[in-house]
Design a protein around this nucleic acid. Structure first.
Lengths: 140, 140
DNA sequence: TACAATCGCTAACTTTTGCAAGCACATAGG
DNA sequence: CCTATGTGCTTGCAAAAGTTAGCGATTGTA
């Protein structure tokens, strides 16, 4: 139930510009980021909208943070802006940035679709324990 | 304009189960994949729905491919299933597969310089056990 | 048998997404 | 001056997303 609240907070953060002060990034909201990218590409709002196959009023609303675009629209925007979809998702606060910095083992475990959630958790715990043990024993 | 059509095709592909024959993956659709993950985690539909903060009928519809979840719902599902959001997006056909590079857990473990040989062995054993358990339990 | 709890699903509803039509403003060109 | 074409924005509206209430079926338990 409290997850709902977290979702709402995320939504709020994504769509409302002045909530962006949390991040040091000057283009913190998804909309601002997209607008910035569009302007860097010298594209007008309509041009980008046409390229992406979405309507121009809608793109306008996205840029101003009035609408939260769906996954597919976001994907389409990523293609239009020649940007990795992951970058866009990260900007939108949808993808975890720190995940990229995790160790390869953890990443691999997280990505393995053949393990259950519990099993993944166990393997990651195990891995972290090993790392910790090695840490302390080497500083002896 | 033809981008619109591509979007629709993607939507169709994502949501309609029997369109999934294109992929060799037996859990090709997002819904099937989520269901599989949920069952691996021994969670009932309602339990996962509660964890993710969404309604159970909606999760049911997602699993059956009747609804396309938004980015935020997908993210929430990823968290609930302890799986990388990227993996989920890739399954949904929203992220390119090569971007998410499903690196092998064993390979990652083998290459990790911070683990001892013994620790590597243990992790790989553990991983193999899990896989085997899942194998037998899914052939029910 | 009956009562309670859990499973997944259906139906009806509210909310949000995304679009078509059209507004106001600016820069030109005839 | 008047049309033309560009910019971004506002306004309803259809179609999806997502929720609440409740169904029938199953399981355990008294």
């Amino acid at each position: 139930m409290q997850q709902v609240k977290r979702l709402q907070e995320l939504a709020f953060f994504v769509s409302i510009p002045h909530m962006a002060q949390k991040q040091p990034d000057p283009y913190a909201t998804l909309g601002e980021f997209i607008k910035r990218q569009r302007e860097l590409s010298q594209l007008s709002l309509r041009q980008l909208a046409d390229i992406c196959g979405i309507s121009n009023p809608y793109l306008s609303q996205i840029e101003r943070g009035l609408r939260t675009p769906s996954s597919m629209i976001l994907q389409s925007l990523a293609k239009g802006l020649r940007i990795s979809a992951e970058t866009l998702y990260t900007q939108a606060g949808i993808l975890d940035p720190q995940e990229a910095e995790e160790s390869d083992v953890i990443k691999a475990v997280m990505h393995d679709p053949d393990l259950s959630a519990r099993q993944r958790e166990m393997m990651i715990d195990m891995y972290r324990s090993f790392r910790q043990v090695n840490e302390t024993s080497s500083t002896t």
